[in-house]
Design a protein around this nucleic acid. Structure first.
Lengths: 324, 324
DNA sequence: CTCCAATGCGCACATCTGAGCAGCGATCCG
DNA sequence: CGGATCGCTGCTCAGATGTGCGCATTGGAG
């Protein structure tokens, strides 16, 4: 006991000395061995033990480290191609909080897009989050041929969707032409949706959206202030019914339940835009979720495999990891 | 500016990710490169930058780290073979503080001795510090042939020197025989010292001490409670004179000034024990200094080259480094 | 006293990593 | 528009490091 104590005592001193020579003075293990009278193997094993026994601490101290961990965890857990997580300090409260989150997520989402630099046709959705993304796109972040909308983008309500601004910004920053989908996201009946899809202009746009290899879209929630639900084509009764069916949010105007299944087939048939199957077929499909309460729809989108790249805030990332 | 900002932002994320893969998951740079889509060179350079920019922090966190730094500094600055520094928390005050220091230094000194494991003859001095060392020696810390005293060890005062206990403990723990030097450390006249040195028993002991390859001795200070000065052979007047000459302490009964020179030759000739020249000739000469005010004599001993291994407390080490 | 397990050591070998260097594209000037 | 320069990339090559293994020493059990 006593022998162990004093032996490990002297050992610790030696480990500390070796660790300092190695990590502070950057001597090679060979040199350290010569200096303290050990073989380089002994020095190497001592260094192992020093790390093992926490005599040496190696840590990644950057504030973003936590976010990167979330990203890596999301990728590993759900097999995502990529994930970017933005830091949204809990300081801001109330409605402004979601604005802050949107901006923060938009920033990292734009970084991600610029890094991927998709070419050809890029299909986009609309909404406040997408608007925040579009506004932050720097000139020349990639070279694309055409920007096209993924789903219907006109509104009946007084608040404008700014859908055009989004498409135009994507086009302007990439040198691409653009094509809008001049129809509501959700119409009154399935028949009307079918009829609209037969309209040449709409059909062309939908074909282009289907052909696009890249899709960038927001993940919405069925809140009263949601642009989809507030657009005037879904009655309050229908909204309540939708929630009863377990809808946790929408992807390109199609509402999903927690499992990632279409929440209400009847309503879904009234949507104007590409199908989730078409979306899933794209090699790059970037979902952007920002703000509180986005966890369920983010997880649903992941389960439905309609996203293979996720951009979200840290709260959403944590929720997804905790519940997925 | 904005471009720089966003670029370095994404770069930082990448550095953090790469650093985590490297330092936490212990992937090779090659594997990391494959995973994140970079060449191993880019990964290596990213890791360099991550350390450079303090994204990764590597530190030796053990409480002894500071002490080891002092040890290394002592060795480097003064060309010592070894130095061991004990931690003496400033908590204890007054007279007890020196007792604590002695115990702490004795512990590390014993570790050092056990590690060196000197063989043959070991010459030792006496004093409270040496007593603390002796008492902590574990059985079998080394195998020696003979233990012998370096200098006179009888006292005229009422307080016993415990010199015999020291020698006996060294002998008992090493399986060695022992030989005492039955004379005072300092006598009344130089002539008496010479005469004593001619006595067969004393001469034999001195010869053995000279022949020893190893010496272990305390570094004393000229305080009123010093066993040397209190032994009764140095008058209060002489003590005052000694201090006037700049004596900062003694090594085996010989007082040195701050430069490491004999402080008062006339007094020195009255000492009974081996000379500093004989001491300097030994390949292993361990000086032990514990307690406040020991800095000057420690430094003097180093300058005089009578020690090539120093064991002391952290306060003494700091003083020596600050003033040497 | 003998045998055996356990530990620690150093070596050969494979892998990993760092340093210097040439190529190459972008950028900036003249 | 041509040329110089700079930054970045990947390469070669040598040095540094990790790994598995055989050998020796040690400590203990029988």
């Amino acid at each position: 006991m006593l022998a162990v104590q004093r032996r490990s005592n002297a050992d610790v001193r030696l480990m500390v000395r070796v660790a300092q020579l190695y990590y502070r003075l950057h001597l090679s293990q060979q040199e350290i061995g010569e200096r303290v009278g050990l073989s380089r193997f002994q020095v190497g094993r001592l260094l192992d033990r020093a790390v093992e026994e926490s005599i040496v601490r190696i840590e990644v101290v950057h504030p973003d480290a936590r976010l990167v961990e979330l990203e890596d965890a999301l990728m590993a857990r759900f097999g995502l191609d990529a994930a970017v997580v933005a830091d949204v300090p809990a300081a801001t409260q109330g409605l402004a909080a979601d604005d802050v989150a949107r901006d923060a997520v938009a920033e990292v989402a734009v970084d991600l897009l610029a890094q991927r630099a998709p070419v050809g046709t890029i299909a986009v959705s609309w909404g406040r989050t997408m608007l925040a993304v579009a506004r932050r796109l720097p000139m020349g972040w990639t070279k694309a041929d055409e920007i096209v909308q993924l789903n219907g983008a006109t509104s009946r309500s007084e608040q404008p969707t700014r859908a055009n601004e989004i498409v135009e910004r994507f086009a302007a920053t990439t040198g691409a032409s653009f094509r809008t989908l001049a129809a509501p996201a959700i119409v009154g009946t399935a028949e009307l949706s079918t009829a609209l899809a037969g309209d040449p202009a709409v059909e062309e746009a939908l074909d282009a959206a289907r052909a696009a290899h890249t899709a960038v879209f927001g993940l919405g929630i069925p809140a009263p202030d949601s642009p989809h639900l507030g657009s005037g084509f879904v009655t309050p009764d229908e909204q309540a019914r939708l929630r009863e069916k377990g809808a946790v949010g929408d992807v390109v105007g199609r509402f999903l339940d927690a499992q990632g299944e279409i929440a209400w087939r009847k309503l879904d048939r009234r949507a104007v835009g590409i199908s989730l199957e078409d979306l899933r077929a794209k090699p790059l499909r970037v979902g952007v979720a920002a703000g509180t309460g986005r966890g369920p729809i983010a997880l649903a989108a992941i389960r439905a495999a309609v996203v293979n790249v996720l951009a979200c805030d840290d709260g959403t990332a944590s929720w997804v990891l905790a519940h997925g």
